Lab assay of single mutants.
Amino acid sequence: WVPTKREEKYGVAFYNYDARGADELSLQIGDTVHILETYEGWYRGYTLRKKSKKGIFPASYIHLKE
């Protein structure tokens, strides 16, 4: 896992994603996520609506905010 280059990196989910394991994070369309790390097509972070739950999710489900 590699920390993100920018201190504040955010994105928005444009697909729903159902977590398949305890380390994964479920997403709903429109969720804003804070991205902490990246690795081979995956991000690690949390949604702003539930900051206490961190997990991994596919990068392809996220539109990055500039």
Rank of each mutant, 00 (worst) to 15 (best):
E37W: 06
E7H: 14
G41A: 06
Y43I: 05
F57I: 01
Y46L: 03
F57C: 05
Y10G: 02
L48G: 05
R6S: 12
T47A: 12
G30H: 03
A19E: 03
S52I: 08
Y43V: 03
A59T: 06
G41R: 05
L27I: 06
A59C: 08
P3Y: 04
E7W: 14
G55Y: 03
K65P: 07
V2L: 10
V12W: 08
G30T: 00
T32K: 12
Y10A: 04
P3K: 06
S26M: 03
I56E: 00
Y39E: 02
T4I: 10
Y43E: 00
T32F: 15
A59Q: 09
P3T: 08
Y39W: 12
I62H: 01
G30D: 01
K5N: 14
L48F: 10
P3N: 06
A13K: 04
G41T: 06
R20T: 08
P3F: 04
I29E: 07
K53R: 11
T47V: 15
T47R: 15
Y43G: 01
D23K: 06
K50T: 11
L27G: 01
D23T: 06
I29M: 07
G11Y: 04
L48C: 15
A13T: 03
K50C: 15
K5W: 08
L64V: 10
Q28C: 12
I56T: 06
G55S: 02
I62Y: 01
V2A: 10
V2N: 10
Y17N: 00
H63Y: 10
N16L: 05
G55N: 00
Q28G: 05
R20M: 09
G45N: 02
T32P: 07
Q28Y: 08
R44I: 06
Y10M: 07
I29Y: 06
K9N: 06
K50M: 13
P58C: 07
S26A: 05
F57L: 02
S52A: 09
G55R: 01
I56P: 03
T47S: 10
I35N: 08
N16V: 07
D31K: 02
S26D: 10
A13Y: 03
P3V: 06
G41F: 05
K9I: 10
V12N: 02
G11D: 02
G11W: 06
E40P: 10
W42L: 02
K51P: 15
E24K: 03
T47E: 07
G45T: 02
R44P: 00
Y39P: 01
G11H: 03
Y43R: 00
P3I: 05
G41M: 05
T4N: 08
R44Y: 15
A19D: 00
W42M: 02
E37P: 00
L25H: 02
S52K: 10
K53H: 11
K51D: 08
G55L: 03
S52H: 13
D31P: 03
W42A: 01
Y46S: 04
S26E: 04
L25G: 00
D18F: 11
E66H: 14
S26G: 04
L64T: 05
F14D: 06
R20C: 09
Y17P: 01
R49M: 10
S26F: 04
R20N: 08
G55W: 02
I56Y: 09
V33H: 01
K65I: 15
E66V: 13
A13I: 04
L36F: 07
H34V: 15
F57A: 01
Y43C: 06
Y15Q: 15
K51T: 12
H63F: 10
R49K: 14
G30V: 04
G11S: 01
I29W: 05
I62S: 01
T38S: 13
D18L: 11
R20V: 10
T47P: 04
E7V: 11
T32M: 14
L36N: 04
K9F: 09
L64I: 12
G11Q: 04
T38I: 12
S26H: 04
Y61I: 15
S52L: 08
T4S: 14
S26N: 07
G41Y: 05
D18Q: 14
T38V: 13
L64G: 01
R44Q: 04
L48V: 09
K65V: 15
N16D: 10
A19N: 02
N16I: 06
L25F: 01
G55E: 01
S52P: 06
E37I: 06
L48E: 09
G41P: 00
G21V: 05
K53C: 09
L64E: 03
H63L: 13
A22K: 11
P3C: 10
L48M: 12
K9W: 12
Y10R: 06
K9C: 14
H34M: 13
T47I: 15
V33G: 00
K65W: 15
G11V: 05
L48P: 04
G41V: 05
K50P: 15
L36T: 08
D23L: 08
K54R: 12
H34F: 15
K51H: 09
Y43H: 04
V2F: 10
G30S: 02
E7Q: 11
Y61E: 02
A59Y: 03
F14R: 15
K51C: 15
K65L: 15
G41C: 08
Q28F: 08
Y39K: 15
K50S: 13
K53G: 05
H63V: 14
Y46M: 04
K9Q: 13
K54D: 05
Y10K: 04
R6M: 11
F14C: 15
I56C: 10
L27K: 02
V2P: 08
L25E: 00
K53D: 08
T47C: 13
R44A: 04
V33I: 04
A19R: 01
K54Q: 11
Y39C: 14
K50D: 15
T32I: 15
Y15D: 14
P58Q: 03
G55F: 03
E8H: 14
R20K: 12
A13E: 04
K9A: 11
G45I: 05
Y43F: 09
Y10F: 11
F14I: 15
H63E: 11
T32N: 08
R6P: 14
R6D: 13
E24P: 02
N16Y: 06
R44C: 14
R49V: 09
K50F: 12
S60D: 09
G30Q: 00
G21W: 06
D31M: 06
Y10H: 10
G55T: 03
G11A: 02
I56K: 10
V12K: 05
E66S: 14
A59W: 05
A22E: 13
L27S: 02
D23H: 11
E37R: 04
E24D: 04
Y17A: 01
L64R: 04
G41E: 06
E40Y: 06
E37L: 06
K9H: 10
R20F: 05
Y17M: 02
Y39D: 03
I29K: 13
K9T: 10
L48H: 10
Y10P: 01
R6N: 12
G41N: 07
K51W: 11
E7I: 10
N16P: 12
P3Q: 06
I29N: 03
T38F: 12
E8I: 11
T4D: 07
F14Y: 11
I56G: 02
E24Q: 08
R6A: 13
K65D: 11
E66P: 14
Q28K: 14
